[in-house]
């Protein structure tokens, strides 16, 4: 027998984009964004994540936070695939200005330049910026 909530008619699926522009530990934005992304994923929405400006630092490999007494939440980005959040984009210009490449990142991403990202933003129905 199916559970009652499984009989609910499916709601509309909207295109959600999360724009991450902050470094991971200096402010709470990165962690809050991750929480909200997981909520949207639970509602089976069409989720895209963008990492640009200092947001690219959120997915930098090798974070070891013991020394600052803060939880290292970077492994969670690797778990997003399990929630069918697989559209991850990084802005090319942001990576390059910080001397980084995709080899520095904990997850596979698509590298888009600013014009490609702008076009992708235009396609979205909901954009949440952190």
């Amino acid at each position: 027998m199916s559970e009652p909530w499984e009989d609910e008619p499916e709601g509309p699926v909207r295109k959600f984009m999360y724009v991450n522009r902050r470094a991971p530990y200096g402010t709470i934005y990165a962690l809050e964004s991750l929480e909200v992304v997981l909520i949207a994923a639970a509602f089976e929405q069409d989720v895209s994540l963008v990492f640009m400006d200092d947001g690219v630092y959120q997915i930098k490999k090798g974070q070891k936070t013991e020394g600052i007494g803060v939880k290292n939440f970077s492994p969670t980005y690797r778990a997003l695939e399990g929630y069918d959040v697989e559209k991850l984009y990084v802005e090319k210009e942001s990576l390059e200005s910080r001397g980084m490449t995709t080899d520095d990142l904990v997850v596979p991403v698509q590298v888009f330049d600013k014009d490609q990202l702008a076009a992708l933003m235009e396609e979205q129905e909901v954009i949440l910026s952190f």
Partner: peptide, 14 residues
């Protein structure tokens, strides 16, 4: 500050 470098995954060799 070293602990802030490590937390952010930045490489001291760099």
């Amino acid at each position: 500050l070293g602990p802030d470098v490590s937390a952010r995954g930045m490489d001291e060799d760099n």
